[in-house]
Design a protein around this nucleic acid. Sequence first.
DNA 1: TTTCTCGATTTTGCCACGAT
DNA 2: ATCGTGGCAAAATCGAGAAA
Length: 576
Amino acid sequence: MPNKLSSITKAEILEALDFIDHNGIPKDNEWNQYWIMYNRIPYPFKHSVHLASKFKIDFRSDHFYRTRISELGFNIQFKSEKGKDKAPKFWIGASYFGESPNHIPMLEDFIKNSYWATDHDFSSKTGKTIDKRLSQVSINDRIAIRFFSRKNSTIAIAALGTVKSIDEIHNGHLEVIWDYFPKLYNGPKPSGQGAGNWWNTFLEISRPEDIELIFDHEITNKRLSRLTWNLEHGYMSPSGRQGKSKDLKSHEGQFGYGHEEWLFDNAKLIDGYHYGFLEPVRKYQKFHTGKIYDVTFYTLDADSSIRYEVGEVYGLEVIDEQLADSIKQQYKTNGWLQEMEQQIIACGANDNGFSGFNGIDIFNVRYRPENLRINSPYKAIPKENAIYSAQRYTFIQDTSFSLNIEEEEEQFIFITPFPPSSNDGKDTNEDTGQPKRKKSFRKPKEVEIVYLHDAISIALTQKIRGIHQHQNVHPEHPAGYGQHRIDIVVNTNQGLVFYEIKTYPSILTAIREAFGQLMEYSYWSKHNRAVKIIIVTQIPITPKAKEYFNHLRDKFNLPLYYQSFDLSTGHLSEIT
DNA sequence: TTTCTCGATTTTGCCACGAT
DNA sequence: ATCGTGGCAAAATCGAGAAA
């Protein structure tokens, strides 16, 4: 009798996955144990197959059917509901039982009976380390079985799977659901610092590149990096000596500026990238070259010794010397290098030798400006945070340093000024009872990312024209008074919709800048009313901002909305 | 900034021996 | 003849902090 699913083709499954991409997963189908992995994105197995069959075939997701579908070329993985949100760990296990002379191959049994185990005596020396490692395994961790050749220093992965249960862990036994149709690595053994000892019976691997290689699983490589103090200029040009290290041995102390002070100067772009410099990268350039990081920046105000979280950037790439040199050459050609030199002089620092630096000492990283988020204002890091014990410019990986600063609960209560008599009649209500640090703190300087504004404007116009037809979408529409122009005006059945694009690196600044303009455009003249006013930025909405828009609409009946536009994918978010 | 030291991690050597 | 395999130990390497 033919398999119920034998009529389903690969193309139909792909179509179903595409449908899910656009329409999401219905609530009822979110509870799922088996997932089709496609382009590293998990799709619920049963729902996907159902869709592919146009709901014609009713079946229970069992081993037989999963095998059938996986044979079409789909990797299917198990993931339990338990501890679903926890980040998995990645383990490598041996394929044999027994000690040296008497090896018993176990792979077949492991696969057939859905487990991995070791027969080690946990009282022996190596047994104890294995026991210790096993105790750190949790449900949904991933595990691989390896063969190896010590002579050639190569490994071959024989199976990949997910830990389903750890109940028998004290017996050295893990219940594992092995992947269907896995991509199995076979090649040189990961080596070097952080690779772990692959000859061990059981080990955890943690380097992102290894996890990607073995498990085809992408890990965001998060780092913390300290920046020199540059509040006044918002890392768009050197800000002079105030708040900086006074240590004459450091570059900063010696010259009065650091090369990272142009890190957020997004007006200077080459092929969509901004090139900058990070001191912690310089120290281990060789190690970091070619890697990609999500970096959170913090800074230290040397005058108050308060540390602040400045912002973060996603997908920061560490470049090599060759590229750095060619970028320096381009900066020279564009006259930007000279501009930078003038900025050094303008802030009162010493520009001696600036033009003589190697490319790699001026540029060692690059990022796309749309991936930059700046806190406005910078978030003060509580004194208890471990970051206060980090003294140097290092690229911190340790999660114990995680900033994770809670959004400050805004509190506004009226503060009674001191009565005049208490202080010779002078008003001293500036720092009433508050810690001193607050008084000198101002918002960072931010500028709009001009290129991004233009690019979004063009792409968005095109996108909306696809929906509302060419003649109903007018970019750069005159506001009807003065020389002002509205970024995009759309003529819909319900009336006019105004779009204002803002590309500041912080969402709050973007909203603030757009708000006044939009109010003016729509209400300055009573005829020009828009039915909807939409602020568009490159930053996905935050819960706080969402609340703000709801509040504005509730309280004042303003038809004000927010959308974010992802330039790389051309995706426009829901209206919020 | 450079060099040194120390501890931790990783690699290699050696043993034994069955499988190829 | 050569290789895969795990334990154990020794050797090599690495990273971070201290000292120079």
